[in-house]
Every structure is written in structure tokens, then in C-alpha cells.
Design a binder for these strands. Structure first.
Lengths: 209, 209
DNA sequence: TAATATACGGAACTTGGTTCCGCTTGCCAA
DNA sequence: TTGGCAAGCGGAACCAAGTTCCGTATATTA
């Protein structure tokens, strides 16, 4: 399965033959660029049209040919898994950045939760797309918890420290609640999960003293 | 939604204009024949290849053109629902017939359960295909219980009366167990649900005195 | 700078759903 | 019985999406 953002596998490339440990056959720069572009494009496409979005649409968004998708991600599941990991990573890393660039910690938290909701769209599709290979899904889920709960917790901590929200809110619990808001009434036009999540986050806020 | 096996709807056909209640515009004989053939063919195709079997395959099995399928069942869900009702009906009606034609009540029960398992394939597909219109699914489910549990109960009763199985087995519970056997490990080549069901039914049997 | 492996793009092919229309056939009235 | 005709049929044609393949372009290395 495609394993991005980790060291390249043990492929025995056209190594020098020196050490028996394979030298990392670094991919061509354009290939790496395209892979990243595809990950972004796919994530956006999933949010916009669901995980069943046509391959061609993703290719068009990324500005590449369909062949390029298949070279990097032989199956749709490969692509979805890669996007998932990519998103978890991006989401986790976005925490500190948002904290630095937002006016207040609570604003940073709100924006971070927005990213998290985007991410959940992919996650739900993933669960459907990976009915078969549930082992892969399990390990991804663990990864997701490891990376995201601490990120959320630190945002909560910052907001609490700034006196914007009450201390003691559990990150895991909050993320679970957001997740639940995003599942219920999926596809119902009367239900806007994002708005409900907004209310939830607004509700954390303490009245200004 | 296609409503087979009930009186034709209130279509205002080219009536004589006498009563305001519409006269039943009975369908042409070949149309009824084709509809029945399609129901059978679709049921067989679902068992053989799952509910995602191509429309063309079903048409070929039934010996009709694809246009005929679309005329009778505009959407795949229509077809699946119709097959479901048809199967419930056929399954319920098969009980007494099997009882009459089998060597023993227990044999009849075993064969009936076989039909029931075939039917479950459709049922599972239905649940997936009807994510949207869950109301329709609910009412079908009720219909399913009303018709099938008594049928199963009477077979159980006959077998018990013949001294082949212990009395007191609950039909609903047995059907639930069969259903569960058919869900677990779906798609796993190492798991043959039908064999497991066979064991379950064989297990009902009392040692010959 | 030349040689070459790598990667790219997108046309072509495959598969499956959906529509449409000319032909056939069951039904009814005369 | 037969003629008219609307209901119904078959399947070709069309459309949408996935997948493969290969000629071309380019990053990399010598």
C-alpha cells in the first residue's frame, strides 16, 4: 500500500552496490511535486464531490493526466489512504501555525476544527471504501488518534490559558462530538453539520468577563 | 414505486367515464409474463453475482431486452424492492408445498431454510441500496416478519409434531441466527455461510429414538 | 552537453448504465 | 375472423467512468 510521508521502502534500485542496505532511490522532483499536487487535489475533490468523484476530475484539479494518478496510486483505496494520512499530518501540523496566526486561541481552535471537519468527510468515505481491508483501517485509526488528539488538546489548553474557554474540556470527547455531528443526517439538505459544529465550538467560549 | 402482487393502482386509464373509480387497466399478458421472468432472473442473478450485477446480465437471463427492464423497473432500487417482495411471497408460500413434497418435515425445513438464505442475499443488498429511502425499507421489513416467521413456525411445528426435533424452538430466533450466520465474514472465501447454516439446522434434529 | 531512465499526458479501450425508436403483438370492436 | 392500434418489446446507440498503453518530454547523471 502506498506509504507516503515515510522513508522510501527497501526497493533495490540501481544502487551503487556498496552497502547491502539499499540506497534511497530518490524520486524525480516532478514526480514528488505531482504526488503532492494529487494529494491536495484529491482532498479538495473529496470534500467537494465525495469519495466517488471521478478520477478524471481529480486529475484535472491537479493539472495532471489520468495516467499520473494511476502511476502513483494504483487503486482508489491507495489514493484515499494516502489522502487520509496526508490530512492527518496536515491537520496536526496546522495546530501550532493557526495558533500563531490567529487573533486569539479560540479563533485558532475554531479554524482548526474546520480543518478537522473537512478531514472527516474523507474519513467517512474511507470507512466505506475500505470495507475489505479493515486491518489497514484500524491502524490508520490509531494513527489518527495519536496525532490529532494531542493537537486538539494543545489548542484547547491555549484557549483555556488565555481565559477564553473553561479549562478541563477533554480533547478526545470534543472530537468525538464533532464527529457525531458530522455523521447524523448525512445527505439531508436540512442539516448543515458545519453550522452545528460552529455552535458547539462557540458554546465553549466563556462570557467575556 | 413498482407495486407488484397487489391490485393495480388508481391509474385513470381510458375508462368509459361511467364510475369515477378507475377501472383496473389490466396489463397485457406478455408484459405480465416478462415482469415475472425478470423477477426470477433478477433473483437468480443477485444470488449468483450480487446486487450490483449488470443490468444487461439480468436482461439476458430473462431473455428480454434491457429496455424492458427499464420500463418495468425504472431504477435499480425498484427492481430490488420488487424482487424482495416477490421472494418473501415465494418463500412464505413454499412452506406448505415443501412440507407436502419432502420425505420428512425436517427435510422440508432444511430446504425452506435454503430458500431463506437465497433470499437473504437480496435482503442485504437491499439494505445497502436503500440507504436513502429507509422508510420503504422499514415497511418491507415488517412485511417480511409478518409473512416469514409464521411460515417458519409452521415448519418447525410440523417437525416437532413428527418427533424429529425438540418442540419449543422459536421461529424468529432461528431466523435471526440464520441471518447472523449469513452476515459474518461476508466475502471471505474461507467462510461458507451455507454450510454453517446447514450445521445449525442439522443440530436441531433429535437423535432417532 | 549527451545519454538515459523516469515520469508524464492523454488517446484509446473497456465496462456498464440509460435512452430512444422502429417493429411486433395482444386486445378489442366490428 | 379480422383489421386497427395502443401497449409493449428489443437492442442499437449514446453516455459516463475506469483502466491501459505508448509516444513524448524532462530530470538526472556521467
Amino acid at each position: 500500500m502506498a506509504d507516503i510521508d515515510s522513508a522510501p521502502g527497501a526497493g533495490t534500485g540501481p544502487g551503487t552496490g556498496a552497502g547491502s542496505a539499499a540506497a534511497p532511490p530518490r524520486k524525480r522532483a516532478d514526480a514528488r511535486r505531482n504526488e503532492a499536487a494529487l494529494l491536495d487535489a484529491a482532498a479538495a475533490a473529496f470534500v467537494a464531490s465525495g469519495v466517488d468523484v471521478p478520477v478524471r476530475d481529480i486529475a484535472a484539479r491537479a493539472g495532471v493526466g489520468v495516467g499520473t494518478i494511476y502511476r502513483h496510486f494504483p487503486t482508489r483505496a491507495d489514493l484515499i489512504v494516502a489522502v487520509y494520512r496526508h490530512q492527518v499530518e496536515a491537520c496536526a501540523e496546522a495546530g501550532p501555525a493557526l495558533l500563531a496566526s490567529s487573533s486569539t486561541p479560540h479563533a485558532a481552535l475554531a479554524r482548526w476544527i474546520g480543518l478537522f471537519v473537512d478531514f472527516l468527510v474523507t474519513k467517512h468515505g474511507l470507512a466505506r471504501a475500505l470495507q475489505s481491508d479493515s486491518a489497514a483501517f484500524g491502524s490508520l485509526h490509531a494513527y489518527f488518534l495519536d496525532r490529532l488528539v494531542p493537537a486538539c488538546a494543545s489548542l484547547l489548553g491555549a484557549a483555556a490559558a488565555a481565559g477564553e474557554i473553561a479549562p478541563g474540556t477533554d480533547a478526545f470527547e470534543l472530537m468525538l462530538a464533532v464527529g457525531n455531528l458530522c455523521i447524523g443526517g448525512e445527505g439531508n439538505p436540512r442539516y448543515d453539520a458545519r453550522r452545528m459544529v460552529g455552535l458547539l465550538i462557540a458554546g465553549l467560549r466563556l462570557e467575556a468577563a
